[in-house]
């Protein structure tokens, strides 16, 4: 019974996706346009590019080192910096209203700047390379988690605040053990949007200024009319986004188990 319902959920989730791929395969075969290769051809190309290595290296080919690892490194680094800075700054702004009053206008202005527009600025400042890409990712993706952290820190229940004061809970313990967990549902929601932004900006920064990584590979392939490689790069980015989001949701489900059970009982 239980296994059965799990199977149904699995089918529901992937059925439309499978049909989409089949239609794509059929349409690409019929039109036979070099710019739109079939999914099968794209997968085969991806295998050649990244999975042609020996079994001792888990079949990972040399392309992984130049195309995938630099991108993952930038993405993870940028996302981590944006998240940590966003959470720390957001909690501080949320806890000290005066600080938020002073910084509010500057933050609203900075947030309104489309991050892609800053790529030329960062190119001038840092030249082509990882620092420029990190700056783009951090600046562009910090906002969701920053604003959600402010919101989360502000919305700590006043009764919890009174309780903590009455029991003379220390300032640091109050922040770490009460404010942070209380804000964590909102922080995690911010982290997920953050991750999506970081992925987009990683690709954008590599399209514009990079000598390696998947974004560079996509533009390079496009420039040399190697459309299969270009599509393989695009597919790689979506797979990367999907897998990372899944990982984050798994972490969130563990960390917020208390939150979900509270909501279930109340609902």
């Amino acid at each position: 019974m239980f296994a059965n319902s799990k199977l149904i959920a699995f089918v529901q989730r992937w059925l439309v996706f499978a049909i989409f791929v089949l239609i794509w395969q059929w349409a690409a075969t019929v039109t036979n346009n070099v710019v739109f290769p079939t999914p099968l051809a794209i997968v085969r190309k991806a295998q050649q590019l990244w999975l042609d290595g020996p079994p001792s290296r888990l079949f990972l080919g040399s392309g992984v080192n130049t195309d995938i690892l630099p991108s993952i490194g930038r993405l993870a680094g940028g996302w981590a910096i944006a998240s940590v800075v966003g959470i720390v700054l957001g909690i501080a702004l949320g806890l000290v209203p005066v600080l938020a009053d002073y910084a509010g206008a500057v933050l609203a202005f900075m947030r309104a700047v489309p991050p892609v527009m800053l790529v030329p600025v960062f190119l001038v400042l840092f030249h082509i390379g990882t620092p420029m890409q990190l700056a783009t990712i951090v600046f562009g993706s910090i906002w969701p988690v920053l604003l959600n952290s402010v919101d989360g820190a502000r919305s700590v229940d006043p009764i919890k605040a009174d309780t903590a004061r009455a029991y003379r809970i220390g300032r640091l313990r109050w922040i770490v053990s009460v404010v942070l967990p209380a804000a964590s549902p909102k922080i995690f929601a911010g982290l997920r949007i953050n991750l999506a932004f970081a992925l987009i900006l990683m690709v954008v920064s590599e399209l514009v200024g990079s000598a390696d990584g998947v974004g560079y590979q996509i533009t390079n392939a496009e420039g040399t009319f190697d459309y299969r490689t270009m599509w393989a790069g695009i597919a790689l980015v979506s797979v990367l986004g999907f897998v990372l989001n899944r990982l984050l949701v798994a972490v969130e489900n563990r960390a917020l188990a208390w939150h979900h059970s509270t909501r279930l009982l109340e609902g």
Binding site: D157, I159, K160, D162, T163, A166, Y167, R168, I169, G170, R173, S177, V178, P181, S184, W258, H259, T262
Partner: peptide, 30 residues
């Protein structure tokens, strides 16, 4: 420092992410 409060709204006063024992222990930690 030698005073404890029990509020009406227990569900908002307790920390839902901590176990019962951790909630009771929490004020003792400092």
């Amino acid at each position: 420092g030698d005073l404890a409060v029990v509020f009406q709204d227990y569900s908002r006063s307790l920390l839902p992410w901590k176990t019962v024992a951790a909630n009771v222990e929490f004020p003792l930690r400092d």
